[in-house]
Amino acid sequence: MLAERRRTRRVVRTLAEVEEQTGVGEVWVRQLVRAQLLLALRLGLLTVVVLGAIPLAFALLPSLGTIGIGGLRLPWLVLGVGVYPFLLLVAWCYNRSAERNEQDFAEMVES
């Protein structure tokens, strides 16, 4: 009983430290923001590279545009259909990782 109360009090103090960003709290917060930003930048860069490569590929290799698959041309398949599952996949990866970062942070604060 006594141990638990002390633990709760310590958590509150840690939370306050995080809030006021003194000492260890500040380091943690900066780490969290940095981790989240790096995650977003990494996935953002991936998306930009993949999307950005599409017009470049068609500009450099015009013959790519004439490839037909199942009666549809490649540019139409890629831009009309294929891009959307890709965007969803990136979003799903982001949500999973961003939540894991937050969970790590919360556990650190609450432990």
Binding site: V18, V29, E102, F105, V109
Partner: peptide, 8 residues
């Protein structure tokens, strides 16, 4: 940026 469960 703080996780929602910390209530900040």
């Amino acid at each position: 940026h703080a996780p929602d469960r910390l209530g900040m």
